[in-house]
Amino acid sequence: MSRRPYLRKIERHWWLRHRRYVVYMVRELTSLFVALYCALLVDGLVRLAQGQAAWEGFVAAISSPLGVLFQLLCLVFATFHSITWFAVTPKAMPVMVKGEAVPPWTIVTAHYAVWAALSLLVLVAAGV
């Protein structure tokens, strides 16, 4: 009787083994597009500061078919990211009222409500 513990290596494609790991990987990927879109917004600000010509160039670039396609892609990924994030918010931020947990759906719904309100605010501010 000897001890010789055997450690099995984790497979390289471990995340293909179960749906929940695939969903996780997709979600991680979507954050890349969220970050890219943030970079685009920052770039827009920089161009704005550089004056009218730079700004108009920026607007022309994002209105081109390629620019629109990129933004659509970002929108899809950001939406996926937000929906999956909202779905887990009750875990990260449970709310207790009078010693009882507030039902998770209330917290999720509150997030959607804030999202809708902020979007509306942005649309109004943009004069749409």
Binding site: H18, R20, Y21, Y24, V88, K91, A92, P94
Partner: peptide, 17 residues
């Protein structure tokens, strides 16, 4: 936050939370 721990926990502990 993969969340797999909570999915498999047999006691509803929800470690991810």
């Amino acid at each position: 936050f993969v969340g797999a721990c909570s999915a498999v926990c047999p006691k509803g502990v929800d470690p991810a939370a």
